[in-house]
């Protein structure tokens, strides 16, 4: 090997390694993005899921309005709405609410609700003890169910926030949850045409 070939070989090895590394970095951006959003609480994802330590001091000095919203994602045919559109809570107080879901179609369907909090600063202070969004929600044809939500707003909520909007978007995940599926049962099956 001539010196030129040797130099070419080592340079090219490094450049190819750089290429592979950057391909990996593209995928690394996915978890990095999640970590970044978690640290900064930017995109309104609810972070505090599951049981909270028993909170004794309920702050009766302050009231926070929590607005509940239920939205269907595009072709989702379910009726989906909260049983009350607004709840007034004291910080530290555990509250229960419910979302009513009704499957008007003639077949079994599975849904997944994805929550979002606005303003995003409030996301870190909203604790969901129990939520229907933790799990997939199956409904038989024509079935109606009240889906429970237990939550708490903690006392560290910034003073200037007096209203929090907790919104759920309901996605149809029937195809993903049932491997065998005929096209007719797929509510989006004809939306491509």
């Amino acid at each position: 090997m001539s010196p030129l070939q040797r130099r070419n070989r080592s340079l090219i090895t490094r450049l190819v390694a750089g290429t592979v590394l950057m391909f990996g970095f593209g995928f690394l951006l996915v978890p990095l993005y999640d970590v970044f959003c978690r640290v900064t609480g930017l995109n309104g994802k609810v972070l505090n899921n599951g049981p909270v330590a028993q909170v004794v001091d309920i702050n009766h000095e302050r009231r926070v309005r929590v607005q509940l919203l239920g939205v269907n994602n595009e072709a989702m045919p379910w009726r989906f709405q909260p049983d009350q559109s607004e709840i007034s809570v004291f910080p530290g107080e555990m509250k229960q609410a419910a979302f009513i879901a009704f499957n008007p179609t003639r077949h079994y369907m599975v849904a997944q609700a994805v929550p979002s909090v606005a303003p995003s600063e409030a996301a870190a202070h909203l604790h969901k003890v129990n939520c229907f969004c933790f799990e997939q929600q199956p409904l038989m044809a024509g079935e109606q169910r009240a889906m429970p939500l237990v939550f708490m707003v903690d006392n560290e909520l910034p003073q200037h926030i007096s209203t929090i909007t907790l919104s759920y978007t309901l996605f149809d995940i029937t195809p993903e949850s049932r491997p065998v599926l005929t096209l007719q049962q797929h509510p989006q099956g004809d939306s491509y045409e």
């Binding site: 750089g18 290429t19 592979v20 950057m22 391909f23 970095f25 593209g26 995928f27 993903e176």
Partner: peptide, 22 residues
């Protein structure tokens, strides 16, 4: 080019996986 074309390849690969591999 070496820094960003692989990222483009990565993002279309993610699309491919979203579309075909669930």
């Amino acid at each position: 080019l070496i820094a960003v074309m692989p990222v483009l390849a990565g993002v279309v690969t993610m699309m491919l996986m979203d579309i075909h591999f669930g």
